[in-house]
Design a protein around this nucleic acid. Structure first.
Lengths: 205, 205
DNA sequence: CGCCCATGTTACCGACCTGTAACGTTTGAC
DNA sequence: GTCAAACGTTACAGGTCGGTAACATGGGCG
């Protein structure tokens, strides 16, 4: 009696993957606490028991969804390196362009932030995923700034990181026509200012 | 049989105010969806019926809490004007210092962001409050930048706004030792860069 | 006093939630 | 074909949720 095809395009995958995909979708639409495991299982074309056999609990399913989302940025960093090999500054500008287009997408990169806001318990398994991911991204961006020859690389990385997270949350709160629409312009200006600071310092030496 | 004093310091107020204060507290601690109206009423030293008689529904209570939180920033802007009357640039630097110290407090200014993340329904009454508030803050900050003589005032205002919201969400996700710790330094650098741009343009003329 | 309005109390409804038990059914590997 | 693992189905437990009804109680004010 196979053939339950509520999500036809997904039905080729195995139940475990369908559940994760569906859960990410429904979490985005209704909030993590706003959707039950039963609804997830049904929408994924399976049932609650299979869900629990795979993930054990809803909290673990949430954490697994975030791990999946987080792992999705790996090709992003690879493309960055491949697009401008050896040219750190070009990669930095490409980073701005890429994250802006990614953040403009449906739910682009907001899953981890949403989880952090929706799950206040400090020892929730999902929180560990978020913290580790955010740390890693911060370090990667700092390395990119260093490779671009920025003197205060860590500071610029933090500035860009705050701008990006601010753009995400701004878009989430007031929609796509708010301050987040100027993210690229602002980020470029900040990069230029940090580069000019290096130039000025070099000129003084 | 008056005198239920679970929150002694609050019990002088009327039930309506106690409910709002308690709700804000519990919403911050457990999330909006993580606490029930019954728990709020009990913690406020009253009961569910009076809560519903005052607010009609949980959603309206949420909106009312956000309105209360939003109205709390009024003295903040007054103090800004009073601290450095007529000196827009000094007020801008004071803004950076003040919002940083405010955002470092317990739950400082995160209530509206949390609500926006926890309540995805686009027509939720709380969302209207958040959007209106964010718009107003954006305009006020832009006016402040204009008064400070910044040429691209709107752009700087958006930059500072994104940095602030980014700092809030960063603190919420990775704690107080993340990139948000550098908010003041970064904001000052961005302000300096926008001021220098004005100076350079003036020099070119 | 008598009245009224805000509040307190209790009980309840229907819906939904996470999680489990027991038992069929399919599938794929050997 | 066999057998075991993965999967589907149904039913249920125990709890919490938002929201309402009916009634008791109080204090303030004319």
């Amino acid at each position: 009696m196979m053939g339950n095809d509520e999500l036809v395009s997904e039905c080729v995958k195995r139940p475990r993957d369908r559940i994760i995909d569906t859960a990410q979708l429904l979490f985005r639409k209704h909030g993590i606490r706003g959707v039950g495991v039963d609804a997830i299982a049904e929408e994924a074309g399976t049932n609650k028991m299979t869900l629990y056999r795979h993930f054990g609990s809803k909290d673990e399913l949430i954490a697994e969804c975030l791990r999946d989302t987080a792992s999705g940025v790996e090709p992003f960093w690879r493309d960055l390196e491949a697009a401008h090999p050896g040219d750190g500054m070009a990669q930095l500008h490409e980073w701005v362009r890429a994250v802006a287009s990614y953040a403009s997408m449906e739910g682009g990169g907001c899953d981890l932030l949403t989880a952090a806001f929706e799950l206040p318990e400090p020892d929730h398994p999902a929180r560990l995923v978020v913290e580790a991911f955010k740390h890693e991204q911060r370090n990667r961006l700092a390395a990119l700034c260093r490779a671009a020859g920025i003197v205060e690389a860590e500071r610029l990385a933090d500035a860009l990181g705050l701008l990006l997270e601010g753009a995400r949350v701004n878009r989430r709160t007031v929609g796509p026509d708010g301050a987040s629409a100027n993210f690229v312009t602002i980020a470029e200006a900040v990069i230029a200012s940090f580069s000019a600071a290096a130039g000025a310092q070099a000129a003084r030496d």
